[in-house]
Design a protein around this nucleic acid. Structure first.
Lengths: 187, 187
DNA sequence: AGCAACTATGTCAATACTTATATAGTTGGA
DNA sequence: TCCAACTATATAAGTATTGACATAGTTGCT
């Protein structure tokens, strides 16, 4: 949130950023955003002012204070935070054997593949819009776009790899099913 | 945890599983594990008994109850949980421009690359041990090993892709630095 | 004997996060 | 006119998670 508040934003705006560009690696609900903004203001990390809205109630616009910028830079200069990734569906794959039903496991993997395929397609559309909207692409992107674009590229690359892994796993699972059935009919 | 408790384990054992096989996609602290085991026992999802330890205090051994198995299967049959992934370092990359210092950004990316390289190496060692310890590899793995092995394979594949992306990004950043410096000296 | 490292269980306080709920104005369509 | 969808802020209750601390036995090294 400190990163986003280099530019002035309302809580509602911030939520939109989480739903759009940040969703590949982080998410937050409004009910987490609003109290956190208040807390950060109390700590002097951000400052707020009122802003009119074209529509709906008055906005409260937050912007990072000098102290907030310091804190953000401190965090960035600590170096990469690794080993805290969380991928929920892998926890499910890990225990798929428990179902004791390879057909259920295969349909799980198929729906995972389908979801991944959808997400890759969605990200590729975002990327192609980026290319066409910005004639300077790719070498002359502004700083504020360069790094977000890198994270998008990784998102696409990782999802692509994950999709391949799904196909690969499905093949292995199907071999396994045939093999298990053959073994069973020998009894 | 319900997945792990198909076999009897103590809280301490479970922590070790999180540190070993599960660490690529989930983690948990002992201070989360112990209270959760108690809660799950109160809910009838797991049962516990006492077990002697070769060393240290008496263990409390938990095992999944029928109700816990039902709950696990319900969760697995809900289908893949997607869009809740969390990758902390990408949040940092996204805001690297804020540092306003491409050299700092480049060293960030270099240390990210180094960490990724280390992790790939570590996972590859685990994978090669798997191959050599199990002569039946890869077609005849037991069910309980087949799916964990799939998640390991994805971990390696994704980290590999991430490593490539780091190199790629570093190249782009270095081009960018030269370009920015050239522009500056024109002034 | 002392100490570090490891096994083992647990609590407490604080922070992070989710889900449900309340409020209220605007826009556009049926 | 009503209703759905969207803009906009906020709180309450509950769950998840982390980090610090407390306790205690064992092993191996110095």
């Amino acid at each position: 949130m400190l990163g986003l508040l280099r530019e002035p934003h309302s809580g509602y705006d911030i939520k939109k950023h989480f739903e759009q560009s940040l969703r590949n690696f982080w998410q937050a609900e409004l009910s987490q955003i609003y109290p956190l903004l208040q807390k950060m203001e109390a700590e002097g990390l951000v400052r707020s002012r009122h802003g009119a809205s074209d529509i709906g109630p008055t906005k409260r616009i937050y912007k990072r204070a000098q102290k907030g910028t310091k804190e953000l830079h401190r965090w960035l200069e600590e170096g990469p935070i690794i080993g805290k990734d969380r991928i929920s569906y892998l926890a499910q794959v890990y225990f798929l054997a428990d179902l004791d039903d390879i057909d259920k496991a295969i349909s799980y993997m198929k729906s995972l593949r389908d979801e991944i395929t959808k997400k890759v397609a969605a990200l590729e559309i975002i990327e192609s819009n980026w290319r066409s909207n910005d004639t300077r692409y790719p070498n002359d992107l502004a700083d504020e776009e360069f790094y977000p674009h890198l994270t998008l590229a990784l998102g696409i690359k990782r999802l692509g790899a994950t999709g391949e892994w799904c196909e690969d796993s499905l093949r292995k699972m199907q071999v396994r099913r045939r093999w298990t059935n053959a073994k069973r009919s020998q009894l």
